[in-house]
Simulated assay, not measured.
Amino acid sequence: MSILSELWRDLSALLFPPRCAVCGEPLAAGERTVCTLCRATAPLTGYWREADNPLFRKCRGLVPVCRASAYLFFVRGSGWRRMIHGFKYRGAWRPARTVGEWYGASLREGGLHDDVDAVVPLPLHPLKRCLRGYNQAEYIAEGIAAQLGVGLLRGCVVRRRNTPSQALRPRRERAGNVAGAFAVVRPERLAGRHVLLVDDVVTTGSTLLSCAETILAAVPDCRVSIAALAVSRRELGEEG
């Protein structure tokens, strides 16, 4: 690195210090993406250590998934919730892979996902992906796959209907909104495998479960587990 480049880097760090993706405060030396305080106070679920957790029971009652987990509670007013909305709606995608790595490390240490063969990000419709410029679930899935030491499978499952955002739909209409929205186009890549289906947020669970159901119907010998970065406490019957 040239002296000029080093000076520019130092000047940029002075004028535009990296900030915590959760609270917005400047990051201290050695901190990455999220400050130490926000990481220490994160609303973690601990579900990666509990096979029979509330999210698993909710999902298993509808679709025969092997495991279901979430990293964070999606808490109203939380900076973590604002961060997720940032890479979901405002183009601030960079924290997604880092937080995916943290989630993947927890899944690895929990030991319940040792037999996962591959990670599958929940697909976006091509039009929505084009407008947004990326699929945030892919960044989360990349981080998880890297920590689990397994491959990331893109393009095996596609979204063939550009459904309206679930966040804008009444709860009672969400399952119907995503019915038939997904299709498996590369079943041979899923056959006989245990795949981890990844998305950013689970509220009612309709979208993830619709995709999981599509995979299981198209590839009967595939096993599916679910990993969401965050889950709504309200949907699990908890406060928040």
Rank of each mutant, 00 (worst) to 15 (best):
S12L: 07
R82N: 09
G79L: 04
K128M: 04
A227V: 04
E25V: 15
W48M: 05
Q147D: 11
V34H: 02
N135F: 09
R233D: 05
R57V: 11
C211F: 02
A191H: 01
C156G: 10
D221K: 07
A179N: 03
P18N: 06
A118F: 06
R154N: 14
W48V: 07
E6I: 03
A70S: 15
L190G: 03
A42I: 04
V34L: 06
L209Y: 08
R9G: 06
F182G: 06
L153H: 02
N177S: 02
R132W: 10
V202P: 02
F182P: 06
P54V: 01
V116W: 15
R172I: 09
R154T: 13
D117F: 05
R172S: 13
V178H: 10
G237W: 03
A118C: 08
A181D: 01
G180C: 05
V116I: 15
T41N: 00
R171T: 13
G133I: 15
Q166L: 13
G155E: 07
L122P: 08
E239H: 12
N162K: 00
S106F: 06
R174G: 10
P126Q: 12
F16R: 11
S206L: 10
T207H: 01
V157R: 12
A181Y: 06
P121T: 06
R9Y: 03
N53R: 01
P164M: 04
R67A: 00
S78I: 01
R234V: 14
T41A: 01
A181F: 07
R49Q: 11
P43I: 00
S78N: 02
D52W: 11
S165N: 14
V75K: 11
M83L: 04
G46L: 02
N177P: 01
L14P: 09
W102F: 08
R171D: 08
L196D: 09
Y139K: 15
L208W: 00
D10E: 12
N53T: 00
G86T: 07
R174W: 09
Q147C: 12
D114A: 15
A51E: 11
A167V: 13
P220C: 06
V195S: 11
L72T: 05
F74D: 14
T204P: 08
W102V: 07
R19I: 09
V198I: 11
G133N: 12
R57K: 15
A105S: 12
P187A: 00
A70T: 09
D199L: 05
K58N: 07
R193D: 01
Q147W: 05
S232V: 08
I215M: 13
Y134E: 09
V119N: 09
G111Q: 14
A179I: 00
C23L: 03
S78F: 05
S165I: 00
